[in-house]
Simulated scan of single mutants.
Amino acid sequence: MFGGWKTSFTIGYGLPLKDYLFRAERKRFLNISFGCPIEEVVVENLVVKVVLPEGSKDISVSVPFPVKESRETKFSHLDMIGRPVVVLEKTNAVHEHNQYFQVYYRFNNLSLLREPMMLISGFFFLFVVCIIYMHADLTISKSSPSYLAKLQWDEVQTALQQIQSIMNRCLGIHDKLEASLRELSRTGDVQACKAARKSADNMLKELSKDLKPSLSFLQSSPLSASLYSKVEDLVAKEKELQEKLIVKHTTVTDSYEKKSGGRDIENRIAPIQQRITALRQDVDDLLEIIDEI
């Protein structure tokens, strides 16, 4: 431009393909003008690029004047081998060079199905992989040390859960014993209170038998070496709690049979009750610790 000013800009426009793309002798050819669309403009170096569909073959160019021709490959969305690009260069192009030129090529219509089939195949492969993943056994080899250690730890966890369940059932029986004493103070029915204690004794004995296999397993398992001391302490505390509750229960029922006064009964069981309260707190704390393991 005058004064040495320079500028750059982009011109874009659309054309109906049917007016420029034709068929001839089993080939397709593009017939379009070469030069710059702006009149009375001299282009120092004009480059025209024609991007053909992916899969085009037997490409040839017919230009009515000498140009420098080269080929490139352009990749776009979902392209596999890229789209062939015909590059035509002309120096000092003027308006007179705005003549029609032709680009001939062969293109199979089946190539239009390449990208849709690639998408379908990709999604199909993805679904197959998902199905295989959902049904495949991806666990570590069952003979590996890590897998065996995991199995042993699962067995330890199961044993701990069984012990917790038995301890909670024992505490429930303890609560029933306490409830029978409250019922005794309300009704004075000593025989019903003794029957409740006898039933509780039988249930506690059964639970004690159920507890032995889990304790034996934890004692023999190397993974539970650090846990067994807490479990052993829990069992010992609960056992002592049982004994103190039985002593309290026996003391209260005997006092009722002897028709002792209420204050006398309270004085006799006061130290026992203090120990029961402390033991119950210890048992609850140990159960909470084991539950967090």
Rank of each mutant, 00 (worst) to 15 (best):
E183D: 15
S141T: 02
A195V: 07
L138Q: 04
I120N: 05
P116S: 09
L177F: 07
I163R: 00
Q191H: 09
V86Y: 00
N92C: 01
L211V: 03
V94G: 06
M134D: 03
K205G: 03
L177S: 14
L110S: 13
V103M: 06
K209S: 11
N168V: 05
I120W: 07
V156Q: 04
S180V: 14
D79L: 10
S165Y: 02
Y147K: 05
V85N: 04
I173P: 03
V156M: 02
R182M: 15
Y105H: 07
M80T: 11
Y104E: 00
F125Y: 14
R186E: 15
A93D: 03
C130D: 01
N92E: 08
V156I: 04
I120R: 06
R169F: 12
L88S: 05
N98V: 01
R83A: 03
A192P: 08
R169Y: 12
A136Y: 10
E183A: 15
E178S: 15
L119V: 08
R114T: 15
N109H: 13
L112D: 08
T139P: 03
Q164E: 03
H135T: 13
V129I: 08
I131F: 12
R83P: 02
Q152L: 07
E206N: 13
F127V: 14
M203Q: 15
V128T: 11
V128E: 01
I131P: 02
F127R: 01
I173N: 04
L148I: 10
V94D: 09
I163Y: 03
S143Q: 08
T158D: 04
P213L: 08
L113R: 05
G172N: 14
R186T: 11
S141R: 04
K176N: 12
F107P: 14
L88T: 05
S143Y: 02
T158M: 04
L184S: 10
M80E: 12
R106T: 10
V86E: 02
A195G: 03
F107R: 07
Q99H: 05
N202T: 14
L113T: 11
R197V: 09
L211Y: 05
P116F: 07
A159D: 05
T139R: 14
L181I: 15
N108T: 04
E183V: 07
E206D: 14
E96I: 11
K198Q: 13
L119P: 01
N98F: 09
F123G: 07
I166T: 02
M203D: 14
T187L: 13
I131G: 00
